[in-house]
């Protein structure tokens, strides 16, 4: 059986908000090390990989592997019934067909319980190769989100170029073109505003901005984001969690 407790329901709410626009139904695999999810978005452009280590929970118990087949929008609907600072418990018996969610406000002596029906989901898996990326950029998650939102007014696609001078985002559409360039920098007072670039060779890739904007909904989970790119390959975009990560593998647009 699974029993996992979080001190604040907002932790799970934010994670679900970061993935719900891309995923419909997917399996969450639970074992003694934690919860994991790997699922393609409906159009197979983005793969979402979520890891929530058991250390990230205030209490965690999972004696044997449990697969939770969930509709992510149904989970989001139920989570809306929890206050952000409620204590949240996830519970599922072995071979049960439901996930029990308990929301507890210890001050008000309120306990709400919701049973979410589980589904058998035949999920497609992709083998992700271990990759040494040509460029790695760590930057503010909020700044990335803002930059992409600004450029989405111009075009459906953004080109990202990374070289030793910095990282440049550019877009071109009917009304004109625009770009934003960030130089590597260290901000001692606000470390999350630093831009760190590790590079073995310059990279330039283009991506669909609609999908990218869905990915950056994870910005509420972490102050920084790690972008990793290699020419002609999907980018890896990672938001670190206190014990785990939300990672996206994002297929670029390729010249015909």
């Amino acid at each position: 059986m699974l029993e996992a407790k979080l001190d604040a329901a907002s932790q799970l709410k934010k994670i679900v908000e970061a993935i719900r626009d891309m995923l419909g139904e997917c399996n969450i695999e639970c074992n003694e090390t934690g919860l994991a999810l790997q699922s393609l978005d409906k159009s197979h452009i983005v793969l979402v990989s979520l890891l929530l280590g058991s250390d990230g929970f205030s209490e965690y118990r999972c004696d044997r592997g449990v697969t939770l087949g969930l509709n992510i929008n149904s989970l989001a609907t139920v989570l809306r019934c929890a206050n952000n600072d409620d204590i949240l418990t996830l519970r599922s018996e072995d071979r049960a067909n439901e996930l029990i969610l308990t929301f507890e406000d210890s001050k008000a002596d309120r306990i709400s319980e919701f049973n979410l029906r589980l589904m058998d989901i035949d999920q497609e898996y992709l083998a992700i190769p271990e990759t040494e990326y040509a460029a790695t950029v760590v930057m503010s998650a909020a700044v990335l989100q803002r930059t992409l939102r600004d450029l989405s007014a111009l075009s459906e696609a953004v080109t990202i170029e990374i070289d030793k001078e910095g990282i440049r985002f550019s877009a071109e559409g009917d009304l004109g073109k625009g770009s934003t360039h960030f130089k590597p920098c260290v901000d001692m007072e606000n470390a999350e505003n630093s831009i760190n670039i590790t590079l073995s060779e310059p990279v330039s890739l283009s991506f669909n901005l609609q999908y990218f904007s869905n990915i950056t909904k994870a910005s509420s989970l972490s102050s920084t984001v790690t972008l990793q790119m290699t020419a002609g390959m999907p980018a890896q975009i990672e938001y670190k969690l206190p014990s785990g990560h939300v990672r996206y593998y994002f297929a670029p647009k390729i010249e015909d």
Partner: peptide
Amino acid sequence: DSSQKPLSAFFGGS
């Protein structure tokens, strides 16, 4: 012009 390919064009499926 550039086109959008699915992830399976880059990663093998299983």
